[in-house]
Design a protein around this nucleic acid. Sequence first.
DNA 1: AAAAAAG
Length: 500
Amino acid sequence: MEDTHPAANDGASAVTTEAKPLQIKSWADVADEPDPEQEQEQAGPSDEKSDVQLDSLSIDESKRVDNNLTDPDDSSIKSVTSGDTLYTSAKSFEDLNLSSDLLSGLYNEMRFERPSKIQAISLPMILKPPYANLIAQAHNGSGKTTCFVLGMLSRVDPNQKAPQALCICPTRELAIQNLEVLLRMGKYTKITSELAIPADSANYIPIHKRPPVTAQVIIGTPGTINKWVLAKKLGMSQMKILVFDEADHMLAESGFQDDSVKIMKAIVRCNSNCQVLLFSATFDDAVRTFVSKIVKDLFVRDNNELYVKKEDLSLESVKQYKVQCPDELSKITVIKDKILEIGEKVGQTIIFVRTRNSASMLRQALVNLGYEVTIIQGALKQEDRDRIIREFKDGLTQVLISTDVLARGFDQSQVNLVVNFDLPVKYDKPSEPDYEVYLHRVGRAGRFGRKGAVFNLLCDDRDNMIMDKIEKNFNAQIAQLGSWNSNEDFVDALKKAGLL
DNA sequence: AAAAAAG
C-alpha cells in the first residue's frame, strides 16, 4: 500500500497530454506480433505525501519514438486513480513480478515480447496491492484479454484448491475463447480452470448431481454461473478477483444486468475484498457513470478507471466503406459477386445481420445461387455452434454469416473483412444506431493493428441516416464506394485498405 | 426480437 516508484514520481499531476502523433500506421501487415521497438511512456502520478487524491496518469505522446509500429491506437487512454497508490507503467513483463511460469507462458507460448499500451498501464494497477477495482476501456484488438487473464493467473494462490478467480462473458463463444487464452498463458503453471457455460446435450449433467467446483479459475456466462452459485456448487468465499469481459454490456444491458449484479452481491456477501475488473472497448458516457457507481456502491470503495474518448476509438487500420445498394436484392448480389468472389482472396469475412431470420434468409439465398456458407446464431444447438466456430477458426470456412453473437470479443486474426448487411440499431429504437455494437463489429477486423475493411451495405434513406449518425459520433471517415456493382471499385477499395 | 437461460 505504501510502495512508491521513485522513477514515476515527478510530481506532475493531472496532466494529460493530448498531442496526437501523425497517423501513419503501417505495422499491421509487417508481422504477427507487435514489434519490440516501441517505447512505453512513464506514468507520472502525483505527490506521494498526499493521503487521498485523484491522480491523472499522463501519457506523453510527444516522446513516443516514431517508427512503423504502434499499438492499435491506445494513444489517448485517460486514467484516473483513486487512493494514494502510485503506479508505474510496465515497460516489460519483467517489471510485473510475475512468476517464472507465467513469464514462460507469455514468451514461449503466447510469443509476446512486451506489453501493449493497455497492458503496460493496467497490469500494474491490477497486480499491485491494495488490488484496487479497475474499470478499463481500450481499443478493440489491443490486448485486453491478456490484461485480465494475466491478472487472474497471478492473483490465484496455486496451493489453494478452491475457486479464486471468476470471469463473466456475454456469450459462450467468448467464454470458450477466453479459457483457451488462459490455458495457453497458464500452460507452465499448475492452475486449474473450468468453463461455466450451458453444456451441449451429450455432456449435460443436472446441477444437483455435480460435485462442487474446485477449479481455481472459472470462466463462463452469467446464467450458468448464477445457477451454480445458487445451487451452492460454486463457492465464493475464496474469490480474489472477479472479471467482467464486455463489461458495459454485462452491467447495463437488461437481461445480463440482473445476473451480473446477483453474482457480485453473492461475492460481496462473503468476501468484500474481492477485486473487480471491468473491461470493454466501449463505455458509453451514461453507462460509464452507471457501472462505476454500481461497483463503487457494492464494494464500498473507489475504482481506478481508464478511458478512451469515443472520437479516438475507431480503428485507424480498418478502412470503412459505404456501399449504396438500390434494393435488397442488390445487397445479396454484392455479397455474392464482391465478397464471395473477390473478398475471399484477402482473408476471412464475417457478415453481420440483425436477426436470426435474416441470417437464415441470406444463407438460403446464397445456397440457391450455388454458394455454400455457414451461419452462427444463438438459437443453434450448442454443439453446432461449437463446430461452426471451430471450423471458422481452423480456416475451413472462409465466410461466416452472424448475428451479434460474434459482434463482441470474437478474435480471429484472419478476419480482414467485415460486412454490415444490416446496420446495428438500438433494440428499442430502430431509428437510432447502436454505436457500441457498430464499433465492436468493426473491431472483428484489424486484430492487433492488422489491416482490414468494413463494407456497410445501405439501401434506403433510413440506412443512410443511421450511417451519418455513426460517422458523426465517432468522427470517422467512411468512404463512399463508387458503384455497388463495379468490380474495379471493390478491388480499389481493398487496395486502399491495404489488403490487396 | 441479439444475447443468456431452461433439463
